[in-house]
Design a protein around this nucleic acid. Sequence first.
DNA 1: ATACTTTTATTGGTCGGCCACGTAAAACGG
DNA 2: CCGTTTTACGTGGCCGACCAATAAAAGTAT
Lengths: 166, 166
Amino acid sequence: MDATKEPAAHAAGCGCVLPAAAQGGPVSHALSRVARLHRTAAAGLLRGLGLYPGQELVMMHLWESGPARQADLIKMLGLDPSTVTKMLQRLEQAGQVRRLPDPADRRAVLVEATESGARLLTEVERVWTALEEESLAGLDPAEREQLLTLLGRVEANLWTRNAART
Amino acid sequence: MDATKEPAAHAAGCGCVLPAAAQGGPVSHALSRVARLHRTAAAGLLRGLGLYPGQELVMMHLWESGPARQADLIKMLGLDPSTVTKMLQRLEQAGQVRRLPDPADRRAVLVEATESGARLLTEVERVWTALEEESLAGLDPAEREQLLTLLGRVEANLWTRNAART
DNA sequence: ATACTTTTATTGGTCGGCCACGTAAAACGG
DNA sequence: CCGTTTTACGTGGCCGACCAATAAAAGTAT
């Protein structure tokens, strides 16, 4: 299993083949595959904590800012309002989150982590760093920084694109 | 540029903030966000073709190999069998795919694109190259190759990891 | 031929995520 | 003060994706 230098090195280590019709978007193809593998790995690690992938991001923001309005969470997560509503309903059902009416705005809802939810912080951090390390194994710090920077630029591109579609 | 005081460089262009609890996995965080934006963008482009994101990958493999067994699709896509079953049911309902019993194996199913499905090929290619270009705007060829290579290494890491979990 | 194991596909359930639509409250404008 | 947006959430529906459990056929012994 030597790490040879081939142009299609991205297909190394997996049985996948890049379909001809996808050759116009090789990075898109790789991104889709990596993201799904990454999410599946996260799911496996989070299952032990009773969380589903995506929920940990909500909890992170709640730990960060304390009680927050749902609208703020939506803005920070960049998700659809209905998605956040349902995730919070399930997190509340699971006892990780509490929802209170906002005294200053009768249509808003304040969300905060329960004690049970707060106890997940260190575990989630551990899982998150473990996943990062498994994902980036074999990449030196400079390469990790490069990847982060490149992903950031792609994110900016897609962000402005989606914003423009409004 | 290493260890500079620009920790949130990836957040440029979007209103997001990296939560403190996610600092152990900055690349994971960026990857999640980019992947979701990318998928949403793909959904918007594919909607005009009557496809949902993910379905175009199935079609690509069918265009590539002609009639294929479901098990082969599963292997090439790296998806769960039940996922492929349901996707094919919907693609069949939409008239893009036809399913025939395999004469050589009575439990297998042969899947092939219909004429309607075959007509989507050029459109899907156009959409994919457009999405690729919008995602990678501002990145020169060397940077795109770097990104592809780095994603490939991450994919290999996660692939072997998931395989090991069996 | 019989019994055991592997492969292939399906069903049912759950969750994240989106869209389209609806409702109630706040903010704005005349 | 009142009508009109705008904002904040919720519902229902749909799809991709996973897991768990099943059934049926094929393969492999014994």
